[in-house]
Design a protein around this nucleic acid. Structure first.
Length: 374
RNA sequence: GAGGGAGUAGUUCAGUGGUAGAGCGCCAGAUUGUGGCUCUGGAUGUCGUGGGUUCAAACCCCAUCUCUCUCC
């Protein structure tokens, strides 16, 4: 592994939360961090400049989607994903394990890999640990995910155990097939909702010595307390000197709860997805800005926010843009939502530095309306 | 002035005697490793007005008002 390492800077004396720094070929990432998602080599409705402006240190993209369109060969020909999409900071690519689970039709999972139908044209496709590694190597992200098998919720124990064990075997195969020294390959913890399986998975992956560890298969419909309990038994099993990435989690409260339980990295489509549909995060909770009640509300989305949108536009104007179907509405709301989460993480890092993360969490819950949360 | 056409939801219109409909708009909900300018649901009405025929009228008859087209 070249140019990749994790530096554990300190742990919060009041909570045990971790403050760290990930070094990658395209720069450093202060953790805990939230990573905006750019599935198809673009953070939807955002230019890379705007993504930088809201404070993103790293973005996520997706093997499954880029493999189907435009194809990794084209991205490689363009000079790799960074050049192709004009983003010079770190990139993480997901492996496609989750997409095969959530998007593809008629999937058939075998030990060799997964046969599925493309959601774009219905064509028959096959992904294996080896093909996924080749694709991710061609895309050229700084951090890449192993190919894994994600279990559904709910999930019976046998199914959960088989998926977890298969994910371990696929982790070995990914490791063997991974050909680039300048890309950090993360293993993925599975085990569904069985604590002992999660622990077994974390220990086995740790023995394989990955540069970082992802926690997958959560936030797929289970109650939040259950997710938190599973995190509590998982993170203690992972090595302290490697980053932990909780995949797909990104409501404001879940980010805080994840950090409290030792998570360093998060990604989530929620912020940009709800933004495109007229909903934003605010200090006081969720706000559906397209609702009629904001037609004559000339205040910013969030009085506390320092983003470009809140500095220059009103709720009434943004509502108008949504009602009129204007693209700018999606952009302005996305700018705000991304800034909201990224700024929350800036506050989290500062709080850990000051050993008072629990106070930040209390202050958050004191204002944030959880009754209308996700 | 003469002749024709049209008046039904916010809007454009469908509905030829039997429980008033559609598209759009409007209102609301959903959204966690992104098939999402998407998806799901909801509310809409003196059927221009007044009379008549009929068991029953948006629909048939009479009158009237409004809009519109053509001609003088």
């Amino acid at each position: 592994m070249k140019n990749f390492s994790f530096e554990l800077i300190k742990t919060c004396a009041a909570s045990g939360a971790r403050r760290g720094r990930v070094h990658t070929p395209h720069g450093d990432i202060e953790t805990p961090c939230y990573m905006p998602v750019g599935t198809q080599a673009t953070v939807k409705a955002m230019t890379p400049e705007a993504v930088k402006d809201v404070g993103a240190q790293i973005i996520l993209s997706n093997t499954y989607h880029l493999h189907l369109r435009p194809g990794e060969a084209l991205v490689k020909e363009a000079g790799g994903l960074h050049r192709f999409m004009h983003w010079d900071r770190p990139i993480l690519t997901d492996s496609g394990g989750f997409q095969v689970f959530s998007l593809a039709g008629l999937r058939k999972i075998s030990e060799e890999g997964v046969k599925f139908r493309s959601h774009i044209d219905g064509s028959s496709r096959f992904l294996s640990p080896e093909t996924v590694m080749q694709i991710e190597n061609d895309l050229g992200a700084d951090i890449i995910m192993q190919f894994d098998e994600c279990s559904p919720y709910p999930c019976d124990r046998t199914t959960a155990e088989n998926a977890m064990l298969r994910t371990l075997r696929w982790a070995e195969r990914c490791k063997r097939a991974h050909a680039r020294e300048d890309q950090a390959l993360f293993g993925i913890v599975q085990g569904a909702f069985e604590k002992d399986l999660r622990i077994e998975s974390a220990r086995a992956l740790t023995d394989m010595d990955f540069p970082g560890y992802s926690i997958g298969g959560l936030s797929v419909g289970e109650p939040k307390p259950q997710m938190y309990e599973l995190l509590e038994v998982t993170t203690p099993e992972l090595p302290r000197d490697k980053p932990r990435y909780l995949m797909g989690v990104g409501t404001p409260d879940c980010l805080l709860e994840g950090v409290l339980r030792g998570v360093d990295m998060f990604d989530c489509v929620l912020a940009t997805r709800i933004a495109r549909n007229g909903t934003v995060f605010t200090t006081d909770g969720r706000l559906v800005v397209k609702n009629a009640r904001y037609a004559r509300d000339f205040a910013p989305l969030d009085e506390e926010c320092d983003c470009y949108t809140c500095r220059n536009y009103s709720r009434a104007y943004i509502r108008h843009l949504f009602k009129a179907g204007e693209i700018l509405g999606a952009h302005l709301a996305s700018v705000h939502n991304l800034r909201f989460l990224l700024r929350l993480m800036e506050k989290v890092r500062a709080a850990i530095d000051a050993d008072n993360l629990p106070q930040l969490v209390r202050d958050f819950y004191a204002r944030y309306d959880m009754s209308r949360n996700f």
